[in-house]
Computed example of a mutant assay.
Amino acid sequence: MKNNEKVRLLVKYALLIAMTTVMTMVIRIPTIATNGYLNLGDMVVFVAALLLGKKGGLIVGGLGSSFADILAGYTHYAPITLIVKGLEGYIAGAILETRVGKRVPLLATVIGGIWMALGYYLAEIFMYGAKAAIVGIPGNLMQGLFGAVTSIIFFKALKQSRINI
C-alpha cells in the first residue's frame, strides 16, 4: 500500500469515527430504565462496515460510539459500547464479505443491529438486573434496525453519486 493510499484510508477512518460520534450525540433519546440513550450512530457504523469491511466496522463502531459516551457523560457505558458497537460493525462487515451479504446487505446490517441489542441486554443484566435490562431491548432493536435500513439507503445513494469513496 502506497503512502497516499494509507493517508486516504486513515482519513476515512477518522471521518467515520467522527461522524459516528456526532450522529450518536446529535439526537439522544434517554432510556430511563437503563440510564442510557437511543441514537443514530448505528447508521454510520454500518456505513463503515459497507465501505471498509469488518475491520473498519470494528474500529469505527467501537471508537466512535465509545467517544460519544465519554463526551456525553455516559462514561459508565464506554467500555461496554467499545465492545458491543465494535462487534456490531465487525459482524455486519464479516457478513457483508460473504456471498449472501453481498447479495442482501440489509441482512448483514440487521444481524449487526440485533447483536447490538443483545450485547447491551447482556451487559445491562449485570448493571441493572434482568427486569430493567429487558426494558431496553425494544428501543435498542428499533435503533439497530433503523440504522440498518438507513445505512443501506445512504450507501446506495453514495454509490450512485459517483463520489470517489
Score class of each variant (00 low, 15 high):
1 M>S: 12
2 K>T: 15
2 K>V: 08
3 N>A: 15
5 E>H: 04
6 K>N: 13
7 V>D: 12
8 R>H: 13
8 R>V: 14
9 L>R: 10
12 K>L: 13
13 Y>R: 05
17 I>Y: 05
17 I>E: 11
20 T>Q: 01
22 V>I: 15
26 V>Y: 06
27 I>W: 07
30 P>E: 00
32 I>R: 14
33 A>W: 03
33 A>P: 04
35 N>C: 07
36 G>T: 12
40 L>S: 03
40 L>Y: 04
42 D>W: 03
43 M>R: 13
44 V>E: 10
45 V>Q: 01
47 V>A: 04
47 V>G: 01
47 V>L: 09
49 A>T: 05
49 A>Y: 03
50 L>E: 06
51 L>R: 05
51 L>I: 02
52 L>P: 03
52 L>W: 08
53 G>H: 10
53 G>F: 06
56 G>A: 05
56 G>F: 03
61 G>N: 00
61 G>I: 05
62 G>C: 02
63 L>I: 14
64 G>S: 07
64 G>H: 07
65 S>Q: 03
67 F>N: 01
68 A>K: 02
68 A>D: 08
68 A>F: 02
69 D>M: 00
69 D>S: 09
70 I>C: 10
70 I>L: 15
71 L>N: 00
75 T>D: 14
76 H>Y: 11
77 Y>Q: 08
78 A>R: 08
78 A>S: 13
79 P>M: 10
79 P>N: 01
80 I>T: 14
80 I>S: 06
82 L>D: 09
85 K>I: 03
86 G>R: 00
88 E>M: 10
88 E>N: 09
89 G>K: 00
91 I>K: 10
92 A>P: 00
93 G>E: 05
94 A>T: 01
95 I>W: 12
95 I>H: 11
98 T>Q: 07
101 G>K: 05
102 K>G: 12
104 V>R: 15
107 L>R: 12
111 I>W: 07
111 I>V: 13
114 I>P: 07
116 M>G: 03
117 A>I: 02
120 Y>E: 10
120 Y>V: 04
127 M>R: 15
128 Y>V: 15
128 Y>P: 07
129 G>R: 01
130 A>Q: 13
131 K>H: 11
133 A>M: 09
133 A>C: 10
135 V>D: 00
136 G>Q: 10
136 G>Y: 06
138 P>L: 07
138 P>W: 04
143 Q>T: 01
145 L>D: 04
147 G>Q: 11
148 A>Y: 10
148 A>W: 04
149 V>E: 02
150 T>H: 00
150 T>S: 09
151 S>E: 05
152 I>V: 14
152 I>D: 10
154 F>M: 12
158 L>K: 00
158 L>W: 02
159 K>R: 14
160 Q>E: 14
162 R>K: 15
163 I>F: 15
163 I>R: 10
163 I>G: 12
164 N>F: 14
164 N>R: 14
165 I>T: 15
165 I>C: 13
